[in-house]
């Protein structure tokens, strides 16, 4: 069974329609990248999946339709979404943000082990755990968001531009960790990125959106090698 399946998804904000029939599939434990220019509908696709925008068509998570489900219920059925702007609760401390990530889990022993892992990946979060999340830098906030998503132990992670506004070295490190989490936990990752080169390197399959439709889809390695696709859609 596919982990995530989108079929002819239409979505928009009020009278403006953004997605004009997006279809895509991803298997359990896979990393998929979703590429395209600004305004192509990448973020809206993620929002549709987690119930943040009205949509029509079919979206299934592990074969179960997400139609008319609230964001909370979708999240509780095994999805973690790190949105644009990272969704950090800046009124709370770093530790409280992390606690909210795992607050629905019952397997306390595993949670404890996951905390150890999180602090191995991101030692800075351990140092700052008592501080307000608002004191973190952009890169540290991205780390916190990722750490929190890891603690949720989802089946599917939606990551919206994790590289945005970060220094190249930090981006490298974060992408390494994403790959590591994917391998260790078998979690599927749907990655939205502007940085197509990095995303193609990380993912197995890629979809390129153009004005709300899937323009090109295929193996990342093939897209990377295809000069015309690269030039016309990915701009590098």
């Amino acid at each position: 069974m596919e982990l995530l399946e989108l079929e002819e998804v239409h979505a928009g904000y009020g009278p403006t329609q953004v997605l004009h029939g997006v279809s895509m599939k991803m298997a359990e434990g896979e990393i998929i990248s979703l590429l395209g220019a600004n305004g192509a509908g990448k973020t809206t696709t993620l929002r549709a999946i987690c119930g943040g925008v009205r949509w029509d068509g079919a979206i299934k998570l592990s074969g179960r339709s997400l139609h008319r489900m609230s964001t909370e219920d979708i999240v509780r059925s095994g999805l973690a979404h790190v949105p644009e702007g990272r969704g950090i609760l800046t009124d709370l401390t770093v530790e409280e943000n992390l606690r909210l990530g795992e607050h629905l889990r019952r397997d306390r022993d595993q949670v404890r082990k996951d905390y150890v892992r999180v602090f191995e990946y991101f030692p800075v979060l351990r140092e700052r755990r008592r501080l307000s999340a608002s004191t973190l830098s952009g890169g540290e906030q991205q780390m916190l968001a990722l750490a929190r998503a890891l603690l949720m132990r989802p089946r599917l992670m939606l990551l919206d531009e994790p590289s945005l506004g970060l220094a190249p070295l930090v981006v490298r490190a974060i992408f390494e960790i994403i790959r590591d989490i994917n391998r260790a936990d078998g979690v599927g990752v749907l990655l939205v990125e502007q940085n197509a080169r990095l995303a193609l390197e990380l993912s197995t399959h890629s979809y390129v959106l153009e004005v709300g439709r899937v323009a090109v889809a295929g193996l990342s390695s093939e897209l990377k090698g295809n000069d015309s696709v690269r030039r016309s859609y990915l701009g590098y």
């Binding site: 943040g52 609230s70 909370e72 509780r76 949105p83 609760l89 709370l92 607050h103 949720m152």
Partner: peptide, 17 residues
């Protein structure tokens, strides 16, 4: 904690279930 989170930032809290 969940109550405080919901109060301060409902959208981000929803994404945490």
């Amino acid at each position: 904690l969940a109550m405080r989170a919901a109060a301060h930032n409902p959208d981000a809290s929803r994404l945490l279930g």
